[in-house]
Design a binder for these strands. Sequence first.
DNA 1: GTCTATACACCGATAGAC
DNA 2: GTCTATCGGTGTATAGAC
Lengths: 184, 184
Amino acid sequence: MSAAWAVAREQGLAQLTLREVAARVGMRAPSLYTHFASKHAIYDAMFADAWTQYLEVDEAAGADELVGARAVLRHSARTFFDFAVADLARHQLMNQRTIPGFEPSAEAYGPAVAVLDRFRSQLAGFGITNEEDVALATAIIGGLVDQQLANDPGGDRWSRLVDRVVDMLADNLGLPPDNPEETS
Amino acid sequence: MSAAWAVAREQGLAQLTLREVAARVGMRAPSLYTHFASKHAIYDAMFADAWTQYLEVDEAAGADELVGARAVLRHSARTFFDFAVADLARHQLMNQRTIPGFEPSAEAYGPAVAVLDRFRSQLAGFGITNEEDVALATAIIGGLVDQQLANDPGGDRWSRLVDRVVDMLADNLGLPPDNPEETS
DNA sequence: GTCTATACACCGATAGAC
DNA sequence: GTCTATCGGTGTATAGAC
């Protein structure tokens, strides 16, 4: 698995080959079929691994301990953005349909669903329960990530917009400013 | 070219093969090298073709003839969204980095730059000249498109959010409501 | 069980005959 | 300009050694 991640990072997710992964663990390509049913099964395990990684990162980030809806959302968005931008191959696997014909299995989707549920309940804590609002929030943050990786990899042209976007979203959702005596 | 588009639509952009394209025009694969230097050269021509298509669609849509900044932006956003969602393979080529190692040539970028310049001058007409605001607008609409195609292809879960997102953006940009006697 | 050796069908690309 | 033949690469399958 870690060999597979290394190859994906170095050569690109789609350029991952069984022969290269096998070579890094001192094997020949066909031997991998003892452990994985196919190349897609490797992607599947990586997909689950990546979302499990993020679930732990998100829990460790402790956004829930902050005071104020906007502060919590800003922190969650920043955590997601930074995690996604830090590893292009991982992000392509987690959030895009880069690999032709690859669809994660139901088991692999488990941790991804857990992450989304965490976000949903976070929003619910601020009275946001509408599914449409959740879809809006994920789309907007995802849009920033995609633009950053596609058009300014390694830079910060869209990274600098994360806080602004969260506040824009909070305004649209009708969330009050965190500090009551402030007016926007 | 039209054969290439047909293959990309039917089998996926990345599954496009020279043999299949050649077969559809009554040739063998190597003969294509007389007309294109490589497979990437075909992608390059398709990239330019797609953005040229959109440039024409956008000009024909006539958003500029509408009255009111928000109405214009809503119309432009809808035009872009519908065009992108109508053809997954085309959108992957135009707006994502789906093909490993493929980077459009400077010539192929021409029409794409023209489209962006059109959008930029549209915003400038409403007093929006900050590059950051342009980046924000493109990221947000792009985010909707990606979510729609990835998580609800053929549906309308994010399509329904286009107007709302444009108004959210307009609020953030400080654009007044189109109808002066209305208050948000 | 675990791995190797071998094979197959496909890919993009090139060389050279016509 | 198009062909055939071929090369090195890929994912994948299977037979058989240990």
